[in-house]
Design a protein around this nucleic acid. Sequence first.
DNA 1: TGAACTGTAATAATAATAATTACAAATGAA
DNA 2: TTCATTTGTAATTATTATTATTACAGTTCA
Lengths: 135, 135
Amino acid sequence: MNGRFQISMHIMTLLCTAGNDVLSSDYIAGSVNINPVLIRKELSNLIKHKLVASKEGKSGGYTLSKPAAQISVADVYHAVQVNPVLGKARNTPNPKCPIGKEINKHLNQLNNEVDQMIIKKLGKQSIAAFTKLFD
Amino acid sequence: MNGRFQISMHIMTLLCTAGNDVLSSDYIAGSVNINPVLIRKELSNLIKHKLVASKEGKSGGYTLSKPAAQISVADVYHAVQVNPVLGKARNTPNPKCPIGKEINKHLNQLNNEVDQMIIKKLGKQSIAAFTKLFD
DNA sequence: TGAACTGTAATAATAATAATTACAAATGAA
DNA sequence: TTCATTTGTAATTATTATTATTACAGTTCA
């Protein structure tokens, strides 16, 4: 179980509050309270998904790539999701067993249905709206 | 990310097909293709949640504790869930930062909403129905 | 030119997960 | 009664995943 969604949401919320000002990875790391290199790695992923933009060099840093109202929580969820939401077993079920032979197909189906539902729900909330929850 | 949900679902499906016959942890381990001790640990958890019954001694083994139509996939999900579905970060956000101070509250709220939605969905499908998906 | 950044690779440290070994206790059958 | 078979569980080891750290090249601006 990793914390990439939480960390990316934290990053996005900070960038949202910063508006047009850029934030440095060191500043963000100070708020999240994890290593700046990990923050830059997450930022790198968010940039890859076109949610964040960066500027190198002195007085460089990070900003949202577009207005926070146009980025949904689902976008962040999608950007960080590498593992199936219902978990991932490392076993390979016995293909000689009629259940073992098919179970992954059915479990994957279930996983995909749940995943779609989550994306639908999180798609309704923007980063702007999420940030507005803070006092 | 662990595979407890998958493994427990595999176990429940096997027990469902076995009906009143008991299955041994060794037999189940052969289908799931993981260590029998881990299977017994998962079974132990399922017993704790009253989804499975066991019989010790020679010719002992495991059965469902009640008809498969009365057990939902959500019951299994609930039995194995120890970690938040959206992930768990190990950092402690900086309380001096207005965002860091509050973010866990809002992320937990989001997590709980998603979790409720999943339980609602998985509550509609019984283990009997899931097992019927197999040829 | 140099200070302040990003970008990224490589490595080490820590934590979570799974496998294995071992054995006590229960039970049914020879 | 005794023994083979099975659950139940603890303890340990092995493996994998996650996070932290170090290092440094490249960019940009004053």
